[in-house]
Simulated scan of single mutants.
Amino acid sequence: MRGILETVAVAFSMFSALPMPQISWEKRNMRYALCAFPLVGGVIGGLCWLWGSFVSGGVPDLLRGAVLCLLPAAVTGGIHLDGYCDTVDALASHGTPARRQEILKDPHIGAFGVIRLCGYFLLSFALWTTLAAPVGKELCLSFCLSRCLSGWAVARFPLAKHSGLAYTFATAADRKRVAWILLLAGVGLGGIVCWKSLAGGAMVLAALLVFWDYWRRSRKYFGGLSGDLAGWFLQRVELWMLAAVWIVEWGAHLL
């Protein structure tokens, strides 16, 4: 039990801003840390459900949407948004894979990163604001599903370099078992989301399309996966899943 708790603590210490007991990162507690990554999504989804349910009809839609938009970043501390901005800047350079890797290492944010980050929050805010309340199971579980896909990619995708966050977690993990656990968890979550739900089916389809694009671009433009690319993927897939649910709701309203 202690080993499981330490593994969960490692995952939350790295991938969230929530207070955790300080423990040393060792092979034994990092071996399955990626498997605990979806639990961070469970906390985000749970908080979104609580806020969306208890304020339904009680606060203006703009305030409801603003909190739902900002909750994921508040829980994660913005770690994935950092990777999103770096990757956007690297892609905008149209340079070689080596040049893009250099841009990923630069701690400064570029103009394209700022522009895309503003657009990201604006679109996320608009989607959350116009979605029906309360927040459904599809979107609550989307944060877990996105992390199943992200963790699986870290375990199975080729790595671009022998350093960095993705390399640290990938090399410390029992990659084959971690991949199987996350695959089964992802399939189970996808089944629950899709069960008798057109919005859930659209959400899973969107996630798979973004995941395919992630695999293609990480190999073609960067020579493999890195921690920044993992953050870029996570932010994109969550936004596209949110958009897919909104499209279904909007289509049903038109009909």
Results as ranks from 00 to 15, higher is better:
residue 134 P to E: 10
residue 135 V to F: 05
residue 136 G to D: 13
residue 138 E to G: 07
residue 138 E to Y: 06
residue 139 L to W: 05
residue 140 C to L: 15
residue 140 C to F: 07
residue 141 L to Q: 05
residue 141 L to H: 03
residue 142 S to C: 13
residue 143 F to Y: 14
residue 149 L to E: 02
residue 150 S to Y: 00
residue 151 G to Q: 06
residue 153 A to T: 11
residue 157 F to G: 01
residue 157 F to Y: 13
residue 160 A to D: 07
residue 160 A to Y: 00
residue 165 L to V: 14
residue 167 Y to Q: 06
residue 170 A to R: 10
residue 170 A to K: 09
residue 174 D to I: 08
residue 174 D to T: 10
residue 176 K to G: 06
residue 176 K to I: 12
residue 179 A to D: 06
residue 180 W to V: 14
residue 183 L to W: 08
residue 186 G to N: 02
residue 186 G to I: 05
residue 189 L to T: 04
residue 189 L to Y: 02
residue 191 G to H: 06
residue 191 G to D: 06
residue 192 I to M: 11
residue 192 I to C: 07
residue 200 G to H: 01
residue 202 A to G: 12
residue 202 A to I: 07
residue 203 M to P: 00
residue 204 V to E: 00
residue 204 V to Q: 03
residue 206 A to C: 10
residue 206 A to I: 11
residue 207 A to L: 04
residue 208 L to P: 03
residue 209 L to E: 11
residue 210 V to T: 12
residue 211 F to W: 15
residue 211 F to Y: 15
residue 213 D to K: 15
residue 213 D to G: 07
residue 214 Y to I: 08
residue 215 W to Y: 15
residue 216 R to H: 14
residue 216 R to A: 11
residue 216 R to V: 13
residue 219 R to Q: 14
residue 221 Y to K: 12
residue 223 G to N: 04
residue 223 G to A: 07
residue 224 G to W: 09
residue 227 G to F: 03
residue 227 G to W: 01
residue 228 D to I: 12
residue 234 L to R: 06
residue 234 L to D: 06
residue 235 Q to P: 00
residue 236 R to N: 11
residue 236 R to V: 07
residue 237 V to S: 03
residue 238 E to P: 02
residue 239 L to F: 03
residue 239 L to S: 04
